Simulated assay, not measured.
Amino acid sequence: MSADFVDALVAGQPMGADFVIRLLGDVRVSHGASWYEVPEGSKRLLAFVALHRGRMGRGHAAATLWPDAADSRAAGNLRSALWRLNQAIVELIEVDRHHLAFRPGVLVDIDLVTSWAGRMVTGRPMPDDLLVLPTHGLLFDLLPGWYDDWVLTERERVRLRVLHGMEAMTRHLVKAGRCAEAVEVALAAAGAEPLRESAQQSLLEAHLAEGNWVEGHRSLDTYRRLLARELGVEPHPRLAELLGSYPRARTSPITDRDRASSINILS
């Protein structure tokens, strides 16, 4: 589950890690084994500060969060949201007359996840990065149901970063000989974005690394039919070339039984 995955990333942080702002699925706060519900009237403020990071002007935050209110009214709304947040949870946001920012030590789940993905993509994963698999769809659910511009942009950034990280993790797992787990991660990436060709290629490579040519053929056949139905196009030739280059492809042609078993809910 994504909570397990994020918890593993939190556990790998240097000593002194404090509260963790959770934006995947819903706005919540955790501190060790304790969880805190964020007041509804403070969720937008907490999410805004978490997504924008660093120190920001109080006037900018108030005007963005309450764009239809007069400046004085927006400033009052900001003070109320801060007060409710501080009543529910120990002070997370430090405030002076003109600025606000998280206090030192506060972590944000999407920062941990995107940093993990960055390490995967650059080929520099830490030892613990490969211990827990990011296979839960909630990793793509940044503030679901929120449609503010400042949320939509960040949601797309996180989605793409996680997909890149999962595809890179698949390759790291294959290289480590953990092919079954590589298939799991690749399936999660392809399930999140079924039309994404790089995810399908990662899945195909994982199947072949595991020695399952027929599974690779099934996944490519499923992808081919999905592309034809949704976009009217064929997969890039490199996928068929990858499958055809596998030694077993020259000695074990696909049978009618294999073709029948490859039909699934996408057909």
Rank of each mutant, 00 (worst) to 15 (best):
D7P: 00
L239M: 15
I21G: 02
A190R: 12
E184H: 08
P104E: 12
L65K: 01
E181L: 05
E154A: 11
I21K: 00
V20G: 03
A188K: 04
M126Y: 10
H172N: 09
V49A: 11
S2M: 10
A11C: 01
H99L: 06
R44S: 14
R225L: 09
A74C: 06
L107F: 09
E167A: 13
R229T: 06
E210K: 13
T64A: 14
R103P: 01
H60Y: 06
G12Q: 05
R28L: 10
T255E: 04
Q201L: 14
A249L: 06
R79L: 13
S252G: 00
E94K: 11
A70G: 15
E167V: 14
K175M: 10
G244M: 03
P144Q: 08
A3T: 12
F102M: 13
A11H: 10
V6I: 15
L107G: 10
L226A: 10
A190L: 03
S219R: 14
L24G: 08
D149K: 09
A33C: 00
A186N: 06
N86V: 01
E156S: 12
E181Q: 14
H207P: 02
R161S: 14
V27H: 07
M56K: 04
W66A: 04
R119L: 01
S198L: 06
R171K: 07
E94A: 15
V113C: 09
D109W: 06
R73C: 00
T251L: 12
R124V: 13
S245N: 14
R53M: 04
N77L: 11
A101G: 05
E215A: 15
E205Y: 00
D141F: 02
F140G: 01
M120S: 08
T64L: 07
L78N: 08
A192P: 01
P235M: 04
A199W: 03
E210Q: 15
E154S: 05
L195M: 12
L107S: 13
D71R: 11
A176S: 15
R224P: 00
D26Y: 02
S34N: 10
A260C: 02
D148H: 12
E215D: 14
L133V: 03
A101L: 10
V29D: 04
E40H: 05
V151F: 08
I21P: 01
W150D: 07
F102S: 11
V174W: 00
T122A: 10
L187Q: 15
G105S: 04
S261H: 13
F140P: 01
A176K: 12
R58E: 04
G211M: 04
R171S: 14
D141S: 14
P144C: 10
W66D: 09
A74Q: 04
L160S: 07
A69V: 01
A69T: 00
R53I: 00
E234T: 09
D4R: 09
P253C: 07
F5L: 03
L24D: 07
V95H: 01
L163H: 03
Q13A: 11
L138I: 12
L23M: 11
V151C: 10
P39Y: 03
V29E: 07
G16A: 06
W150H: 06
L78D: 11
D258V: 02
R224W: 05
T251I: 12
V20F: 00
